[in-house]
């Protein structure tokens, strides 16, 4: 009952990172939302177009990220360079995660629930996706998008709350659901994205395998189901005093549901036409 938040046990120890800057960056605490940008992508200068205007000491920062920096650089410069390297990596990351391979990498993280779960009770712990509210750095911190309630939330932990939202961009979660429409969360029921299999347990392994096969079977289905009327299934909270609804809130909720029904009607007509 007195369970304390023990979410900061792992990561960050000096011994367990390999020598590359990117793997050090990814393994350091607070950077759990980032995925690995493939080196080929970074080395293709076309992908970095315009970033030299965003990052000072661009060339050296890029060398640091790709582990090509001269070793004889002074320590104080290295500290300043690290800030620039993080910024550069973040901005490359924002471009990378909207590519086909980047989306696939982020999808794995989504399935592992690396971005946390929706705090909204009626979203049934729906896994979240990171999103920026601006594509320009130093404006807004990263937020989390829930595909079920389609709203954005602040990360629980302050070390995630201080990450720049521009490192993920405004488009990423929406592009992900456009590319993988079968992963659009349903509005009811609990869905677990296929969990990563654990090697030590044969039973869960088998079960996970089945789940994986199911989800793979789902992924091969060409045309995803219609989403025109999914909103009708969405559950909502109704405030009550001694079991009675409150006048003003009930009125607002009726109005909101009339707006919803109007949209459903609109979408169903469009669907019948096509």
């Amino acid at each position: 009952m007195l369970g304390r938040a023990v979410d900061d046990a792992s990561t960050g120890s000096d011994s367990d990172y390999s020598n590359s800057w990117i793997s050090w960056f990814l393994s350091s605490k607070g950077n759990e939302y980032f995925c690995e940008v493939e080196e080929d992508y970074i080395l293709d200068r076309f992908n970095l177009t315009g970033l030299n205007n965003e990052v000072s000491n661009y060339a050296q920062a890029l060398d640091l990220i790709t582990d090509n920096l001269d070793d004889d650089i002074q320590d104080e410069l290295r500290g300043a360079l690290d800030v620039q390297a993080r910024l550069l990596y973040g901005l490359i990351h924002a471009r990378w995660i909207v590519t086909a391979r980047g989306l696939a990498k982020m999808l794995e993280k989504f399935k592992r629930v690396d971005f946390g779960r929706c705090p909204r009770v009626l979203c049934q712990s729906q896994p979240l996706l990171p999103v920026g509210l601006s594509d320009i750095p130093y404006e807004k911190s990263v937020k989390l998008y829930c595909g079920r309630c389609e709203d954005v939330y602040s990360p629980k932990s302050s070390r995630h709350g201080s990450i720049d939202g521009a490192y993920f961009g405004t488009s990423f979660p929406h592009l992900l659901f456009m590319v993988y429409p079968h992963l659009i969360p349903p509005k009811v029921g609990i869905v677990e994205p296929a969990p990563a299999p654990r090697a030590n347990d044969a039973d869960t392994n088998r079960r996970n395998k089945r789940i994986r096969e199911d989800s793979e079977a789902l992924e091969t289905v060409g045309e995803p189901a219609s989403t025109a009327s999914v909103a009708l299934k969405a559950d909502r909270y109704r405030p009550r005093i001694y079991g009675f609804q409150l006048h003003e809130i009930a009125k607002l909720q009726r109005w909101q549901e009339a707006i919803r029904d109007r949209q459903v009607g609109r979408l169903e007509v469009l669907e019948d036409l096509s």
Partner: peptide
């Protein structure tokens, strides 16, 4: 994102005033 997309917005009513 257009509401006509499969992945288009479906839940804005929930927060609308």
């Amino acid at each position: 994102v257009s509401e006509r997309a499969k992945s288009g917005p479906r839940m804005q009513w929930l927060r609308l005033r």
